[in-house]
Computed example of a mutant assay.
Amino acid sequence: MRKIERQNDDIVVALSDDDIDLIITSLRETLEALEDWEFETRTGFKRGEIERFLEQVQSLAKHDT
């Protein structure tokens, strides 16, 4: 992973295929391993937020050519 630049509240980074795989795998495992009652406390995010973010990452990975 390499930081490219910072734009206001956004950080632009370059990710390798391995970086993307790590993010996807980690998010999937988090979604599977944590119960609903503990999810937000342990992650700081609602389950739906993580599910949407995972979908976005997967979509970017699929469309990257």
Rank of each mutant, 00 (worst) to 15 (best):
D21T: 09
I20K: 00
W37Y: 13
L34R: 05
N8F: 04
E35I: 07
A33D: 13
Q7G: 01
E29Y: 08
K46Q: 15
L34Y: 10
F53T: 10
V13D: 06
G44N: 12
D10P: 00
L15Q: 07
L22D: 11
T41K: 15
S16G: 06
L27S: 13
S26V: 02
T25W: 03
R47M: 10
R6L: 02
Q7D: 12
L60V: 01
E51N: 03
D19Y: 03
E40I: 05
R2D: 06
E49L: 05
T30Q: 13
V13Q: 05
T65F: 10
L54F: 05
D36G: 00
D21V: 07
T30K: 11
D10F: 01
S26D: 15
V12F: 04
L34A: 10
V12E: 04
S16Y: 02
E5H: 02
E55W: 00
E49R: 02
T43N: 13
E40G: 01
L31N: 02
I20P: 00
F39Y: 07
E32V: 02
D18R: 00
N8I: 02
D36T: 03
D9P: 01
D18N: 01
S26Y: 12
M1S: 14
S26W: 07
V57Y: 10
E29I: 00
K46H: 14
T25V: 08
F39K: 06
D18L: 04
E32T: 00
V12S: 10
A14S: 10
T25I: 07
L27F: 03
I11N: 14
L27E: 08
A61S: 00
L54G: 00
Q56L: 11
K3T: 15
T41D: 13
D21I: 05
H63V: 05
Q7K: 13
W37M: 06
E29D: 13
L31C: 07
L15N: 03
L27K: 10
Q58R: 08
D36N: 11
V12M: 14
Q7C: 01
E55K: 01
T65G: 05
V13N: 07
R47G: 02
F53I: 05
W37E: 15
R42G: 03
H63R: 13
N8L: 14
T41A: 01
I23Y: 13
D10A: 01
K62S: 14
G48H: 03
D64P: 00
L34G: 08
S16D: 14
H63I: 04
S16K: 03
T25F: 09
S59A: 12
R52K: 12
F53D: 13
V57H: 12
T65P: 09
L31Y: 12
I50V: 15
E38M: 12
Q58S: 04
